[in-house]
Design a binder for these strands. Structure first.
Ligand SMILES: [Mn+2]
Ligand SMILES: [Mn+2]
Ligand SMILES: [Zn+2]
Ligand SMILES: [Zn+2]
Lengths: 154, 154
DNA sequence: TCCTTGTTAGGATTGATTCCTATATAGCAC
DNA sequence: GTGCTATATAGGAATCAATCCTAACAAGGA
């Protein structure tokens, strides 16, 4: 969802982050989509308002936002990182056909835990469930009938 | 676990894969560990028996095994892919301290499903749960007390 | 308004992975 | 076993997302 300038200013301030036009644009762009874009996607989008912004600034800013806990990085595919401004607990539907990632909010999944102490001293701090399959678009295109394409896509 | 030559031969044959000493060594190495090694780890290991084996062969072979469904690729960290010869349904404990990945077998987690049709036509073919936290070694080292280090490690 | 410190742009660099290709060899048919 | 063909291997070159480096800049606090 779209953030007001004040809301954004507050989120940055309470984490001790400087506010700059580039940062605001990057964070706003990420908060305004549900598509889990790549750094390159964000650069392309933000460039419309800031034609001189460098890819480097996008990478650097995403790193800062990630370390501040304002964005999450998701790595379902090896080729490149994708980002998510939705930091509430949620899970993902990952399409094997088109590589899209959809949010899935499900209270029951949020409450999962490891059964017993079988985990041998591992201290759990969080978890995430990833469902793979085919999105409605790919189903319609018949891509769910063929074997998933495991080739790389650099 | 360790595979007999016959067992391995059979797994390759029934998927129409040629059997070569390099392939056998790579697959054996992967099947014989629970550590989810990288391609480079496997190359280093296999090189003891096949000093001339190239990294390229390891990458190529892992791709072939993956496409044949004999190994899985896991991408919890963006820096590099890690591989898994355990293709039975299971989940993972991912340590934020040392980046180790442990298997977690749990029947209840295997039975998860998406509640209702909220998923908007998404056809689920599988799922995996990833628990993050700190392994016993990292806990003892006190690494679970500091904030997780989100910096990259290229 | 001034200062300090973190940010930006852009160029160089890194490094895991992929591409290319000549040679070698597994698996199959005879 | 011999020969044939398709595929595998080695090694060198190339790719490209991401990081490093650095000089100029600009928030935000004093
Ligand atoms: Mn999400
Ligand atoms: Mn595993
Ligand atoms: Zn799709
Ligand atoms: Zn650990």
């Amino acid at each position: 969802m779209r953030l007001t300038p004040d809301e954004m200013r507050m989120r940055f301030r309470e984490r001790g982050l400087k506010m700059t036009p580039q940062r605001a644009a990057i964070y706003q762009a990420l908060a305004g989509t549900v598509s889990h874009p790549t750094a390159e996607d964000l650069h392309r989008h933000v460039r419309r308002q800031h034609p001189m912004i460098s890819p480097n600034t996008v990478y650097y800013t995403l790193g800062v936002l990630r370390e501040a806990g304002l964005v999450h990085e998701v790595n379902y595919w090896h080729d490149r990182s994708r980002f998510d401004a939705n930091i509430t607990p949620h899970h993902h539907l990952v399409c094997l056909g088109c590589r899209s990632i959809q949010d899935l909010t499900d209270e029951a999944l949020d409450r999962l835990s490891v059964s017993g102490r079988l985990k041998g001293g591992f201290e759990v701090t969080g978890h995430r469930v990833e469902f793979h399959g085919y999105c409605s678009t790919c189903c319609r295109a018949g891509r769910h009938l063929s074997r998933p394409d495991h080739r790389r896509h650099r």
